[in-house]
Write a protein that binds this DNA or RNA. Sequence first.
DNA 1: TTCTTAATGATAATCTGTTATCATTAAGCA
DNA 2: TGCTTAATGATAACAGATTATCATTAAGAA
Lengths: 125, 125
Amino acid sequence: MKRRTKQREIILATLSGANGPLTAEELWQQARAQSNNLGKATVYRNLRLLVQEEDVQEVHLPNESTRFEAKFTGHRHYFYCEKCKNISFIQATCPVAALDGVTLPSGYKIRSHSLMFYGLCVECD
Amino acid sequence: MKRRTKQREIILATLSGANGPLTAEELWQQARAQSNNLGKATVYRNLRLLVQEEDVQEVHLPNESTRFEAKFTGHRHYFYCEKCKNISFIQATCPVAALDGVTLPSGYKIRSHSLMFYGLCVECD
DNA sequence: TTCTTAATGATAATCTGTTATCATTAAGCA
DNA sequence: TGCTTAATGATAACAGATTATCATTAAGAA
């Protein structure tokens, strides 16, 4: 039977507390603060499991390896700070949402989109 | 001294003729049609060179390895067809451009953005 | 045309991210 | 508490993309 482990709790808690999507590596580094001999394989194993169970979702961003974030049902975008290199969630009315479901003049039918901003975050500006 | 080779011409011509950004692998496959024993290392070498000289630019898209396209000075977006998996350029007024240079309420200063559409292309719809 | 050497093609090596292996640990039912 | 076995931690193995190596080829000045 499936077991509820301390490690999985920590992994999910770390993701839930993050203010942006994390790579497996970043997650491992942060989660180790709670469980100092946490194995990297355990992080990958649990991420796969959590994604299957839909408690966690993958995020694919330009020029970045796969990131993970705790389940979020809304629509939001990401902000990459060119100085500190951190990626955080950003709250802003989506200026593109109106296009979803639309067929462009060229004949392409849009089902969804991915929008990412680059610039300077609050701390770095 | 730097030499103008047949291989580099073919690589650049292939990129210029493409209707979307290509991965090094795709570029290699296509360019080999013109030069059937073109080496993959040559493709990588020339891509690096062409990027340095700014005749070619890299494009980083979500969940995709680095792609390359011939220099283009405007602003455009990409369309990923969920059926045929091809990525093509798309012409559309940018609904996000107005945000560039803007500082959001949260304090994030936007310098640029990356917008990508997912859906069905003309051939697949 | 000849000659120098930049560039090439083939392939081995490297790097990064992820998965498999396996002995050991611990979740949680009896 | 004891027992079964799912899950873990350490590490080797793997996969894909990119770079280095090196003998060979060919660009282009003389």
